[in-house]
């Protein structure tokens, strides 16, 4: 069983079996309160996955599920929130002595699109997952179909683009624009499950910041006398 955690947009936590059966998925769409909600969402996802009724406040004891991996959404996404999920995924895995599987958050969104189309026997044209990157930029990743391991095929790696330039960029890449405002923890865990089954590594070891820390190099001290 795989625990999926992603805070690249809202907060999402899910438990998925190795074969893809979703045991639980809970989340919050709040794009700011990741640190507040992550603990309770973890506890709820584990409790629901165990089939136990939520014992709730004030002192829930968390059922000991037989988890094998923690899937961590590595972004792209606004850094402050994104880091909370990665930190949580690593700490949770450490607590259970199990490995972390890094997943590109856009891959989870792409897999959702591809599975949805497959269910309807529809073809999916080349498309771009587009998410808010703040500071008048979008993050985007272009996908084209699904490979033999059942993983979305990335045509371009995650990158940033000024909002006004997005459509021209996607036009050049021949990709349909698909904006997303949430990530599914279950899809994230499913990407991890498929990557594990295929013996693949799909995500980066560190978060996809895509931006350098915003710092101005120290200049000479300002004069105080006129």
């Amino acid at each position: 069983m795989i625990l999926g955690i992603d805070t690249s947009l809202g907060t999402t936590v899910a438990v998925v079996e190795a074969d893809g059966v979703v045991r639980s998925e809970v989340g919050s769409t709040d794009p700011l309160r990741h640190a507040e909600v992550i603990g309770s969402l973890l506890a709820r996802a584990l409790t629901e996955a165990s089939g136990a009724a939520a014992v709730g406040v004030p002192a829930p004891s968390v059922p000991r599920l037989d988890l094998t991996h923690v899937a961590a959404g590595m972004g792209p996404g606004p850094f402050t929130g994104l880091r909370i999920g990665v930190a949580a995924a690593r700490a949770f895995a450490l607590g259970r002595g199990i490995p972390v599987v890094a997943v590109v958050s856009h891959d989870a969104i792409a897999l959702g699109h591809l599975l949805h189309a497959a269910l309807q026997d529809a073809d999916t044209p080349r498309f771009a997952v587009v998410t808010d990157a703040r500071r008048r930029e979008f993050a985007y990743t272009v996908y084209d179909g699904i490979d033999d391991d059942g993983l979305p095929v990335r045509v371009t790696e995650p990158a940033l683009v000024p909002r006004d330039d997005l459509d021209a960029r996607l036009n050049d890449l021949g990709a349909e624009r698909r904006e997303a405002h949430s990530v599914s923890g279950a899809m994230l865990a499913l990407v991890a499950a498929r990557a594990l089954a295929g013996g693949r590594e799909t995500g980066p070891a560190e978060p996809l910041y895509l931006r350098s820390p915003d710092v101005t190099l120290g200049h000479a001290p300002k004069r105080v006398t006129a």
Binding site: I5, A35, G39, A87, G95
Partner: peptide, 20 residues
């Protein structure tokens, strides 16, 4: 620092839930 604190808070909550 808020962003710095949040890294520790996220990790601590997950560790506590993981260990129950």
């Amino acid at each position: 620092l808020a962003g710095a604190l949040m890294v520790g808070v996220g990790a601590a909550k997950a560790l506590a839930v993981s260990l129950d």
